[in-house]
């Protein structure tokens, strides 16, 4: 029992603290300290969740948001990865791209939302574009730094065995960059999700963000809470999946044997 606890300490502790929070929330509402109108309550939200699940609302909203998320993120991975590799390969390309990156780092991307609406209209394409733009920078920046910081001793050793440029890329630079690439992906996943939800809040006809905004405007807290919790769960699930991926790929790192 104690060994079981030691092994899953983080998981168990986290679960307990979460359960306590839910309990306090429920009690605070039930005992009349806070009005359910403002914060809903776990039991009310659960009942509403069941209703939305049966009516197909949950499925529809999830499908739309996940689709936009997946397309935006995939585009960011493809474009950011390609640009990162190119910039890592050639100084000139890096310098050409640099102003855009600084621009992106220092300005709130969401401010460009109206322009996207003007170009792409209200709805899916705009939401995908926002998710894409949100997720692009970490993918680009981490790919670039992964390729640029290849261990030059390894490159020299590979060259001494006759490595050609594509060997250097596939067998040295890429595998050596896996940890930083995954770190970039982890950031990008969070930002793509943020992008989708933020864009849906403002202009959409379906999706989790739309549902939050829709019920929020009508002050229907219970209904709103369902999608809000789903967004949080999605975020947690994605991050955990990436942690698993990370653990699976970096068994060679000195600290992986803990």
């Amino acid at each position: 029992m104690t060994r079981l606890f030691a092994k899953h300490q983080a998981l168990i502790s986290g679960f307990v603290s979460f359960a306590v929070l839910l309990l306090i929330w429920q009690l605070a509402v039930d005992l009349g300290y806070i009005k359910a109108f403002f914060v809903s309550s776990p039991s009310r939200a659960a009942t509403e969740f069941w209703r939305q699940l049966q009516s197909g609302e949950v499925r529809d909203n999830m499908t739309v948001s996940l689709y936009e998320f997946a397309v935006g993120l995939s585009l960011a991975v493809a474009v950011g990865g390609l640009l990162g590799v190119l910039a890592g390969w050639s100084r000139t390309i890096e310098y050409i791209l640099e102003p855009f990156i600084w621009f992106k780092y220092s300005s709130p991307t969401i401010a460009f939302y109206p322009i996207f609406i003007a170009w792409l209209g209200l709805g899916e394409p705009t939401i995908i574009a926002i998710a894409f733009i949100f997720a692009l920078t970490p993918i680009y920046a981490n790919t670039l730094s992964g390729i640029k910081n290849v261990d030059q001793d390894l490159v020299r050793a590979a060259k001494s065995f006759g490595a050609r440029p594509h060997d250097l890329f596939l067998k040295v630079a890429l595998p050596g960059s896996v940890p930083i690439l995954i770190a970039g992906l982890r950031l990008a996943v969070g930002r793509a999700l943020t992008g989708v939800i933020a864009a849906e809040l403002f202009g959409a006809t379906a999706g989790l963000g739309y549902s939050i905004a829709y019920y929020g405007q009508k002050l229907k807290t219970n209904e709103m809470m369902v999608s809000l919790v789903l967004v949080v769960i999605l975020g947690v699930v994605f991050t955990q999946l990436l942690s698993l991926l990370e653990a699976a790929t970096d068994s060679w790192r000195p600290n992986a044997d803990r």
Binding site: K159, S160, G162, V172, P175
Partner: peptide, 19 residues
């Protein structure tokens, strides 16, 4: 340039840490 007729053993082992 490098060729298969010669092989080098570097001072620091220069091994790929992921292999």
């Amino acid at each position: 340039g490098p060729g298969p007729d010669r092989a080098m053993v570097f001072q620091d082992a220069s091994l790929l840490p992921w292999r």
